[in-house]
């Protein structure tokens, strides 16, 4: 773990662990199962994304991100947003 001291002139241990990373991959089927359980949503497949929907619920999933939403969350997000890490209402 790095140890840093704020006052200038003091010796600091400044090694950080380093790793090669990539975007976390998601398996569309697994996300669908977790989101919809035993329900069997309609599936639409595009080039990069897969869309699952059943009644008011929808899951939009790609290899590296996904969004599951319901009518309630659509109503909320009409005037509540989370942009750039900032919650706005």
């Amino acid at each position: 773990m790095p140890m840093r001291k704020s006052s200038m002139g003091e010796k600091q241990n400044s090694s950080y662990p380093s790793a090669e990373v990539r975007f976390k991959h998601f398996d569309a089927d697994q996300v669908r199962t977790v989101s919809f359980g035993d329900d069997n949503p309609e599936k639409m497949t595009g080039e990069e994304r897969t869309l699952y929907s059943k009644s008011d619920r929808q899951l939009n999933v790609s290899e590296s991100d996904f969004k599951y939403e319901t009518q309630l969350s659509r109503y909320v997000h009409e005037f509540v947003s989370m942009e750039e890490g900032v919650f706005r209402i």
Binding site: V21, F23, F26, D65, Y68
Partner: peptide
């Protein structure tokens, strides 16, 4: 009622 996941990373090698 909602779950959005974006821009997560995983380690390939250390």
């Amino acid at each position: 009622s909602y779950c959005s996941v974006y821009g997560l990373y995983e380690e390939v090698s250390k």
